[in-house]
Amino acid sequence: MTTLVLAVALFLLANLAVALIAAARGPTAADGMLVALLIGTTGTGILVLLAPVMHLPALVDVALVLALLAAIGGIAFAKRAWQRTEGEHD
């Protein structure tokens, strides 16, 4: 059972790495922001899966904080820093 949980965690980490590279190379500035969404869900999943594997129940709390802070970071970025002059395309 532990092996399967660890295998699923490894699979999620591989997904996260591939999607991270794809989103960071994306054409528009919005693609960069997808990373925050991605790490909010996938990172939470990995931490929750690691908790029974490593016999550390406190990792569930870390997963909660991670989910919250990914949301705060993403929304702060969208509201505050992501400004662009009109007509500029990247």
Partner: peptide
Amino acid sequence: IWPLVMAASAGISFAI
């Protein structure tokens, strides 16, 4: 954790 993550990702998706 699940409703919390769903609310968070809904917020981020809306903002983006």
